[in-house]
Design a protein around this nucleic acid. Structure first.
Lengths: 249, 249
DNA sequence: CGCAACGTTGAATACCATCAAATCCTGTGG
DNA sequence: CCACAGGATTTGATGGTATTCAACGTTGCG
């Protein structure tokens, strides 16, 4: 936990959870909602650039993203960084650490974020009392696995042009489904793109320039406006899954 | 399911499960074992090279590997292949498809394998009746996530030499912990290594030659003998996790 | 034997990383 | 207001890494 984080004492009750109004998310049963309400310990606000979780740490909490976004990453000893995935509203953060004990990756905020705080120690009682919610958690872990598989395919076997195309439509799709943004704009740095795709910043920049010349996107001060998501998806050889209403905690 | 698979009618009862005698795996409670015994539908034997699960398929089953090993992979439309992870004794196969509905990757046997067959449809009843087992399943999903994160770091940011070093010690470590083999030998093809690490076979071959020249390994007909695992781990900048006795189903 | 799969090697080429430097922008302090 | 610093983006030059193509040796197998 860094100094940029701010604990909010007035936490929003689950009945007024902002995620419940997002089209893409599921409903709760009455009793589930009251249980989750007790499971929730408060809200946490973090500023852009803050490090939420650090590799190697033992954090007693587990989070659900309520707003904003960030990224999960790992470092090599000499500083090489690999961004492993992104977290957006509705996503669980810190589940891996809750189960394995020690965080195996770090998480940093790409924008200001608000997180719903749970107590790791109470996770098992959720499994005991609400198997349907437990099943949902496993579902979310499985969804994460799918994304990681696809990211591996991208980093390992797609060309630089395909990589960038894939990443952008992937993020845009997720951003929309999570209710984070409807505009086709991603506030992201070319360094982040590079560290996600396993290529250098310079080469990332040149690859982006090629896509811009083809009018598939425009890069504007610290962000990317995607003008032709279909063409990017086509180029990447990727099609968005159906993914109907999905669970969250 | 391909023609190379053979259904065994005489399935081993869970009380005699070969995995139970492996040091690294946990024990079951009496009632858990009887439940899992009813959950189990039989054994499945597959030959080396057989495709267990196909991307896009809807398989009604879920498996635990009892012996042998294989790999999970994804394909691009033009045939480029990315091996995403390996499956070894004690690992669940097909969990993702059980939850998401459709398999998002394929699985192929690297050796002859025997699998314990479960019914997807009964998975939720396990969540209802044995929260501890449900928790264990989530733990396994989380462990998979950790491995994928590390693999992404490898493919994205490690050099070719580090990549090969990492993969070999990673596989050797897992092979030993799962009780699959005690010998420092991996029966694997250089094509598999290449498709795991996102590099070409030719370059893989030259990289392996460098490691062999340093006497860290020897490549012998269709397999790899690791002669200096510590040096490889050092080179890869990787240290094996502790991972005490772990669950399985 | 003929064939296929795997491993090995060399040469030419394409791709990407590294280095260096310029531009643009924002925020800060004088 | 300007000067300045820092971050992000852009561009060009250069060298290294990895890919591709091709040829060849080995082994195992129908």
């Amino acid at each position: 936990m860094t100094s940029e984080t701010i604990e909010l004492h007035k936490s929003l009750p689950c009945t007024q959870c902002p995620l419940r109004s997002v089209e893409n998310f599921r409903d709760f049963e009455e009793d589930e909602l009251t249980f989750v309400g007790r499971f929730k310990k408060g809200d946490l606000a973090v500023k852009k650039g803050a490090t939420l979780l650090v590799e190697g740490a033992h954090n007693p909490h587990l989070y659900t993203v309520l707003s904003g976004w960030g990224f999960r990453y790992k470092l090599l000893s000499d500083g090489r960084r690999q961004i492993v995935n992104y977290v957006m509203p509705g996503d669980l953060v810190g589940l891996q650490g809750s189960l394995t004990g020690e965080m195996q990756h770090s998480v940093e905020a790409l924008s200001s974020m608000v997180l719903c705080v749970f107590e790791k120690a109470e996770l098992f009682s959720l499994y005991e009392r609400f198997p349907a919610l437990a099943y949902d958690i496993t579902w979310m872990a499985s969804r994460e696995e799918c994304m990681l598989d696809e990211n591996l395919l991208t980093v390992g076997r797609r060309t630089a042009l395909e990589k960038v195309a894939y990443l952008l439509v992937f993020l845009l799709d997720r951003g929309r489904r999570s209710g984070m943004t409807q505009k086709p704009v991603l506030s992201i740095t070319q360094q982040h793109v590079a560290d996600t795709l396993g290529i250098s910043v310079v080469h990332t920049n040149k690859t982006i320039a090629k896509l811009a010349k083809r009018r598939l996107l425009e890069w504007e001060d610290g962000g990317c406006r995607i003008t032709d998501p279909e063409a990017l998806a086509e180029l990447a050889g990727w099609s968005a899954g159906k993914e109907a209403r999905r669970p969250f905690l």
